[in-house]
Design a protein around this nucleic acid. Structure first.
Lengths: 127, 127
DNA sequence: TGTTGACTTAGAGTGTGCTCGAACACCTAA
DNA sequence: TTAGGTGTTCGAGCACACTCTAAGTCAACA
């Protein structure tokens, strides 16, 4: 698969795929006879996993650490496990924070809703 | 309260407070006789709310829209309500996404844990 | 055979959200 | 009265994660 198709299938742009390769997030791709990158479909699994890490707010620097450990093979399993566990804890904490924020938002929205419903001219002076 | 104390109490830096004022996220502060900003404690409530919006990933551009509506007074209640409702939906969707990612992370971590526990030399070749 | 379209590289540019520096003003305590 | 601490403005600089440009190569098709 060439970079254009991988772009389509992964949702990343070809530019981004080259950028990820340049910084080490994606392994250097095989090349065909004309020097074009030629990808194996298995790269999609890795890209999808990177997407999960990205969605959960992991910075590229940390993804790079994970990618580097992966290159070391099974010896680095323990370190990778720890890295993911730490990240999971961060994500869990973030979800908890978001839920608290959602409650604040709900309350705020309810305030707007009730003041419009009652049409009592009560000002909503808070934030 | 001067900017330094507000910085301490809000958790923002004085630089950031001036920046927020410059872009319109904070109202222009009153000044004391020597031209220094002099804040009322009520600003802390607004800053805290901005923090919630920020935590939930709202871009500054959208916070500015909300801040601008707020300046219009109660006439804009409906628009502010809609803005917050839309944002709430985005945040809810994001939480759902994060929970799906957490499941993937958990599965991955469990994979590492089981392969180290069994010491079966089984490689973890996935992402 | 020429043109189209996808690819290549290196490097510059962009958007977001701060963060810092320089140079100066002002109050307070020693 | 002088030193320190806190404040002021304006503008530059930075970190992150892309995103785009320019100039060129290559294979396939009309």
């Amino acid at each position: 698969m060439k970079i254009g198709e991988l772009a389509k299938r992964s949702g990343l742009s070809a530019h981004t795929i080259r950028y990820y390769e340049k910084i080490g997030l994606l392994p250097g791709a095989d090349r065909d006879q004309s020097g074009h990158r030629d990808y194996d479909a298995s790269i999609l699994i890795w890209i999808e996993f990177l997407g999960r890490l990205k969605t959960t707010g992991m910075p590229i620097s940390q993804m790079l650490r994970y990618a580097a450990l992966r290159k070391l093979g099974p010896e680095s399993d323990g370190q990778r496990q720890r890295l993911l566990e730490e990240h999971r804890d961060v994500v869990r904490a973030h979800v908890t924070e978001l839920r608290a924020c959602l409650e604040v938002l709900d309350a705020k929205i309810a305030g707007y809703a009730s003041s419009s419903e009652k049409q009592d001219g009560k000002h909503n002076d808070g934030p």
